[in-house]
């Protein structure tokens, strides 16, 4: 947007004395120096004058009393809480707020799905090693899962019948836990 386009957008508020002193000074100086913006100012002033003359002529003929009465009645009327809630919800659901809800929801989903990576302590439910199959070729085997240290132990030990006689060293007679 160039300077003239920016100033043209500000001419309306400037004519209505809605700008602060500094802005007003910038717009005034530009309009004085720039023929294009000066034309834009004159157009707006012309429209303003035309509207004012119509309004001044016609306003007294309009019956405002009933309008104000109805407006006051609507303001004073108590709306049910459900309607107020619905209106508020509608407000929240309207763009652009609703648009931001989409990435926010995605961010929450990503956070929930990847929380395990950031908070290893939360992994406790899934923290055990699980034994899916085991074949100890006839030897006795014990399996332990210990909650405190999240430890899974597979322990080989001597058969009751003592059929490890061929072994050079004697395996333990029972599980070590």
């Amino acid at each position: 947007m160039n300077e003239c386009e920016r100033i043209e957008n500000s001419i309306g508020p400037w004519l209505d004395h809605e700008l602060n002193a500094a802005e007003s000074e910038v717009v005034g100086a530009h309009v004085t120096a720039c023929s294009r913006c000066s034309d834009a100012r004159q157009r707006l002033e012309k429209i303003d004058r035309a509207l004012s003359s119509v309004l001044v002529d016609e306003a007294p003929k309009i019956e405002f009393a009933s309008f104000w009465r109805e407006l006051k009645q609507q303001i004073e009327q108590k709306r049910p809480w459900r309607k107020r809630l619905l209106e508020q919800a509608g407000d929240w659901a309207s763009a652009p707020r609703a648009a931001w809800a989409v990435p926010a929801l995605i961010a929450v989903l990503i956070a929930v799905l990847s929380y395990q990576s950031y908070f290893p302590i939360w992994r406790s439910r899934n923290n055990f090693a699980t034994v899916e199959s085991i074949d100890s070729y006839g030897r006795n085997v014990a399996l332990l899962r210990e909650d405190g240290s999240k430890t899974t132990v597979i322990w080989l030990y001597q058969n009751q019948e003592g059929d490890d006689e061929a072994a050079e060293e004697t395996p333990p007679a029972g599980p070590a836990f």
Binding site: R123, N126, N127, F128, A129, T130, V131, E132, S133, I134, D135, S136, Y137, R139, V141, K150, T151, T152, V153, I154, W155, L156, Y157, A167, E169, T170, P171, P172, A176
Partner: peptide
Amino acid sequence: QKPVLDTTVKIPNKGNFILGGPPHEGGV
């Protein structure tokens, strides 16, 4: 060369499990 134990285990990434019991030098 003789199989002593065959197992399939599912462990958490960066986790471990313990396999024990084979006798060695007066201990296990």
